[in-house]
Amino acid sequence: MFGFLTRGKSITRIALDPPVPQGDRHGIAVVLIVRNEARHAAEWARFHRLAGVRQFIVYDNGSTDGTAEVLRSELGEALTLIPWDQKLRDAVRGLEIHNQVLAYAHAVRNFGPSFRWMTLIDLDEFLVPKGAGDLNEALAGLEGCDNISLPWHMFGRSGHIEAPEGGVLRNYTRRNPDPMSDAKGLRNFKMIVDPCKVLSIRVHQIWTDAAGTTCNDAGRRFTHRTRETREFYCAERIQLNHYYTRSDAELRAKIARGPNLTTPDADHLRRVMRKVENIERDEIEDTSALDWLDRKGVSGWT
């Protein structure tokens, strides 16, 4: 089933045979790999359930803080929880297999046939259906696309040193103004795809045809290369908010946890802090998530 493509000393792209769709497949599934996010898991789950997600397929990478229990309480039968605490290597070459990409490939093959759409995101990322009542309505206008790339909208610390009371959406409303910036670490994407068309996967790239075609959220077609251009940008239907830092205290804890792939500590720290500096340069106010909640008639969101 799997073919491996390597970069450096790790396997970061996994190829697979697309699963066969079920005749009654429908809705959208969110695939998530998580570790020790109990503080914010309830808000993230409630938001995306309200946004129309049908099923949450969560890979628990060794959480010890009650993250799984929070998600079970919020999601009930809408949650599929899978233990995923591992670091795997190719036995011949010693190459580390990216654990997040492995989870994504597993989800596509084993759960993909039941869903029209699948998105593969993190718990610090929120899919905001800006131009619609929910994600299903937003995606109804993109039925001709097998692969939709959503650019990051990168939120910083919003002046918080310690973690504030309340949720992410009300406390963090300042972001970098330019999702298509050339500044290091700011321009990247997550995807919404037809899981039954997936040929290969990286964290930020999914191939559903040999040409690497993807759509923006207006339905215009690009390639993975040309999505990097400013002509690609659109966030009218769905905006991907990435709350990269949260508070300064939580940022420090994030750095201490380390990256998904084994990386020297100094390299990881340098890369993260460079990204934070770029995020917080010339910030703008962005209340898109709260505005959507207001339109839904949700008051007192925390």
Rank of each mutant, 00 (worst) to 15 (best):
R227L: 08
S181C: 03
D209P: 05
C234H: 10
E277N: 14
V193P: 08
L261D: 09
M118N: 04
K275P: 08
G185D: 07
P18F: 07
G27D: 03
D124M: 11
A103T: 10
V203T: 13
R187Y: 09
I238S: 00
H204N: 15
A218E: 13
I206Y: 00
D291H: 07
G297Q: 11
L5G: 10
L186A: 00
H106D: 14
L127M: 14
G62P: 07
P19N: 08
A253P: 02
P264C: 04
S63R: 02
G131S: 11
L199W: 05
R13H: 08
D282M: 09
E77I: 09
G3V: 14
K275G: 06
R271Q: 15
V53G: 01
D286F: 07
L150D: 03
I255F: 07
Q100W: 08
A42F: 11
R274F: 03
G52E: 04
K197D: 10
H268E: 00
R49I: 02
F4A: 11
D134W: 09
G94E: 02
T80I: 11
D267R: 13
N171C: 13
N99H: 11
H204S: 05
C145Y: 01
L150S: 03
S200F: 03
K190P: 03
Q100L: 05
G112Y: 02
C215N: 01
R54M: 04
Q86T: 07
